[in-house]
Design a protein around this nucleic acid. Structure first.
Length: 860
RNA sequence: GCCUGGGUGGCGGAAGUGGUAGACGCAAGGGACUUAAAAUCCCUCGGUGCUUAGCACUGUGCGAGUUCAAAUCUCGCCCCAGGCACCA
């Protein structure tokens, strides 16, 4: 009886064998070229989801491919194991975050192993362990010393449900990005990392990241948001004070007729002190402060403002400008004050109309003439300056510089640059994070924990109630300590660090994961492995993590522990995994196994198929990797994830498509079993004997397939087309007429084709190929077999098809020898029978010949 | 509103620099094998029309344009996805 393909058996067997042989352990070897491949490590949430499976499959194929190409590959995996879900589990189920996390890690590690990923597990790291975060605390101390870590009071986003501070970028539409509660505000003292010290380098080095998708770089540049402009000083009408504004449109300064300031600014209260309108303004400010939250959630809202009964002076026109407090100027950007030019800024225009404020046109477009009485919107484009004193007649683009220079010369302004990027707030009022190594002493103030006292270990014995802030702050044995300077009683910092800090340097720690000496990074190892040659992860996590990692790498470089400027040479951002949703009227969204024959299993109601969306638990459109592995095996799951779409695009999940991938692997298995006895003792064709007809064609196809697969993987990671090419080769073997058992010439060609199929598929489906590799008589690890090379001559076509067009329409085709002369081809085309029908009686104007492709005959 | 991607058969997707549209797979249909079914192997498969071994027309979101030739380039519009949120 012929042996059947039994993935469950084969996969387990090889996974054990690889582990026993330790073939994926990475060692530094200066004689070999290194290749550091990394996928974004997961948060141990409980189970691997299909997005992980896709991400890690892509990475594994690249790792195995590079290995077969002779690289010394580093392919580690670890756990981003600090984070809120663990703490929530503690609150909800009374299970300790550490227990919960470690149980999840154990389960997910088992799942990853079942997928056959080629990780060097000896390098496994978990960021919640003191061996990891102690170095992070050390870096914090160094940062503190250099002023890169500092504390400042600020109004922060406060999630009442998580009892935690959220960074601005973690607030989504006014809601907590994790728990979706409405976000409030709170004033707290917070630790910040001075990422803005590196803003120029972070921006400039974007240009050097040629291995990154342009899309991601654009996002990063926009996030940094550098803008060139000018600070302008507007003296107060009374007194010696002045208001400073930042603008990128100093060319419109002659049109500035009033001043807008953010309602929250302390300046507002100062200006109105003792005036009759004081109460009204205070009321307005309070309203705006409350409105703020809602404002973030609504798409359109009214531009509101209130006159402060105060004036400043336009420094160039000397005219008085009324000052308003408003709800639409951002306090945190620039100085929180804006010079309003209603004619050339749409928001200012709307505001001026509402309050009937003066307008002056200062820029005239080239093609029309603006008039303040007929304008219906602001003109924001370029033009010629008018009503602008000595600058009249100047192009607005030139006036930017000229006016900035002028303001500087009269001492009323200064050229300036602004960034959108703000410092990174890292304080979290949470338990499950790395403690910030700082002590507060009544005598000595803020005292950093001495390096020799690190790590500050997160205590286990705290209580989780889910209320009243961080459990750490209530745990006395941790809080109460002595001052390292004066020895008196003191208290510890109870904030922990943002988990983005851990993921900002884990790729460096992977180079020497067990190095126990300061600074936790072995210089020699880091020098050998860094930077990461290929980083792979989902685009949705990209901006913040990547920017913070870049910052941290540059900072560690400046501390002298690293030698590279950028952590990731090449970046691949994979698309999301999507699937259609199902729902019924009574039960809402349904899991796939809650639907049978188009009906809800609970109520027999009609299940409605919705549009395809990103897989998520809330939409219940998920598939379970455990189930898939059990039913089809890991190789099938890997094949489908790669075959259904190129990595950068979203992947449409299809159960039938998985079935098809399984069928393909069975097809490979069967053809080999079919030939097994006949080819066992035959050596693969070496090309020394001449071949003809079918054999020659099959050998050509074999070498063309090597060429195609190598290009698809090497140049753009398009595994879908690579797999297609192998499928074609498999189909070609199936279509071969079966040679007799003694026909070694034919069998050697078939053996070459089969071995090629196996080796080309090896990185994609490592288990089935390793099994077949052994069955056909090899003893070496398939993972160490060199990637095949193709023979240009064998792969070359002898005959090519030339398309014949008449006036650009395909009318005929002809087959000619590949090296046929161009003139000959043109004359053959004119003589073509079918073509004759279309050109007879017409005048041939010209003939275009595209070598080896087509002839186009233009007639009239 | 702004930024960034993207719209190709019933479906997922192929088509390095403009040059045979629809590779490969799924679904569908037919045939072989079988007592039968499943599995397997082989064939067909964008649409329309006709004088149907074939031929013609049409077809890559819509409308123009450049070109001997456009899925690909240019302009305008529509739709979808992701990111950002009054950034002065």
């Amino acid at each position: 009886m012929e042996r059947k393909y039994t993935p469950q058996e084969i996969e387990k067997k090889w996974q054990t064998a690889w582990e026993e042989r330790g073939i994926f352990k990475a060692k530094e070897d200066p004689t070999k070229k290194k290749y550091y491949l990394l996928e974004m490590f997961p948060y141990p949430s409980g189970k691997i989801h299909i997005g992980h499976v896709r991400n890690y499959t892509i990475g594994d194929v690249v790792a195995r491919y590079k290995r077969m190409n002779g690289f010394n590959v580093l392919h580690p995996m670890g756990w981003d194991s600090f984070g809120m879900p663990a703490e929530n589990a503690a609150i909800e189920h009374g299970i300790h975050p550490a227990t919960w996390t470690n149980e999840n890690i154990a389960y997910m590690k088992k799942q990853l192993n079942e997928m056959g990923f080629s990780y060097d597990w000896e390098r496994e790291l978990s960021t919640c362990e003191p061996e990891y975060y102690r170095w992070e605390q050390l870096f914090f101390l160094w940062m503190y010393k250099k002023g890169l870590a500092y504390k400042k009071g600020s109004v922060v986003n406060w999630c009442p449900s998580c009892q935690t501070v959220l960074a601005n970028e973690q607030v989504e539409a006014g809601q907590c990005w994790r728990c979706s509660s409405e976000v409030g505000e709170k004033y707290l003292d917070q630790w910040f990392f001075r990422i803005t010290d590196y803003v120029e380098e972070l921006l400039n080095y974007c240009d050097t990241l040629t291995g990154w998708p342009e899309r991601v770089l654009t996002m990063q540049r926009n996030w940094i948001g550098k803008s060139y402009g000018c600070d302008i000083y507007f003296p107060m009408a009374d007194g010696d004070d002045m208001i400073k504004v930042f603008t990128t449109r100093q060319d419109t300064v002659y049109g500035a007729t009033f001043m807008l300031i953010a309602a929250e600014l302390p300046l507002v209260v100062e200006l109105i002190k003792g005036k009759p309108i004081e109460d009204d303004v205070r009321e307005f400010v309070e309203k705006v402060k409350k409105q703020d939250k809602l404002m973030r959630t609504s798409e359109y809202y009214e531009k509101e403002g209130i006159f402060l009964d105060a004036y400043c002076i336009n420094p160039v026109t000397k005219k008085k400008m009324p000052i308003f407090a408003t709800n639409f100027v951002i306090a945190e950007y620039g100085t929180g004050c804006v010079m309003a030019v209603p004619t050339h800024d749409q928001r200012d225009f709307e505001f001026a109309k509402k309050f009937d404020l003066p307008m002056i046109v200062v820029i005239q477009p080239h093609n029309k003439s603006l008039n303040i009485h007929t304008m219906t919107e602001a003109y924001v484009e370029e033009g010629i300056l008018v009503n602008s004193g000595q600058f009249n007649g100047m192009e607005s683009t030139k006036a930017l510089d000229a006016i900035a220079d002028y303001l500087e010369s009269i001492g009323q302004g200064k050229k300036a640059t602004q960034y959108r990027l703000r410092d990174w707030g890292i304080s979290r009022q949470r338990y499950w994070g790395a403690p910030i190594p700082v002590i507060y002493c009544d005598q000595c103030g803020t005292v950093p924990v001495p390096e020799s006292n690190l790590p500050v270990i997160l205590p286990r014995e705290v209580e989780f109630t889910g209320e009243g802030g961080s459990p750490l702050a209530r745990y006395e044995p941790f809080v109460n300590t002595t001052c390292p300077q004066c020895g008196e009683k003191a208290k510890r910092e109870t904030d922990t660090m943002d988990t983005f800090v851990e993921s900002s340097w884990y790729f460096e720690r992977f180079c020497s994961p067990h190095y126990a000496e300061t600074p936790g990074l072995d210089r020699k190892s880091v020098r050998y492995w860094m930077p990461v040659d290929q980083y792979i992860g989902g685009i949705e996590h990209a901006i913040l993590h990547l920017l913070y990692s870049r910052f941290y790498t540059k900072m560690l470089r400046d501390f002298g522990v690293l030698e590279c400027d950028e952590p990731f040479t090449n970046l691949l951002t994979q698309g999301m995994v999507c699937k259609e949703t199902m729902r019924c009227k009574a039960h809402g969204f349904l899991f796939p196994d809650e639907v049978r024959d188009g009906k809800c299993v609970h109520c027999q109601g009609q299940a409605v198929v919705g549009k395809s969306e990103k897989m998520s638990k809330s939409l219940k459109n998920v598939v379970d990797p455990d189930y898939l592995i059990k039913k089809y095996g890991a190789d099938t799951v890997r094949t489908f994830c790669l075959f259904a779409a190129p990595p950068e695009k979203d992947l449409e999940w299809s159960d039938q498509g998985v079935e098809g991938s399984f069928r393909f692997l069975n097809r490979v298995w069967r053809i080999v079993m079919d030939y097994l006895d006949d080819i066992k003792d035959v050596t693969p064709c070496d090309g020394k004997e001449p071949l003809e007809d079918d054999l020659k064609n099959l050998r050509r196809k074999t070498h063309q397939t090597i060429r195609k697969v190598t290009r698809d993987i090497e140049e753009r990671f398009h595994f879908n087309t690579a797999i297609s090419a192998v499928m074609e080769l498999v189909n070609a073997v199936y279509l071969m007429e079966r040679p007799s058992a003694g026909n070694t010439k034919a069998l050697s060609v078939i053996r070459e084709a089969i071995e090629t199929i196996i080796v080309l598929l090896a990185p994609i489906v490592p288990h089935i190929t390793e099994e077949i590799w052994t069955l056909i008589g090899h003893e070496t690890n398939l993972a160490d077999v060199p990637w095949p090379e193709f023979d240009h001559e064998v792969a070359a076509e002898e005959e090519i098809t030339i398309v014949i067009q008449v006036n650009g329409k395909v009318r005929s085709r002809m087959v000619v020898p590949a090296d046929e002369d161009g003139e000959k081809i043109k004359s053959l085309a004119l003589d073509d029978e079918k073509v004759a029908r279309f050109i007879s009686g017409k005048k041939v104007l010209r003939e275009i010949y595209v070598p080896k492709k087509l002839v186009n005959i233009v007639v009239q």
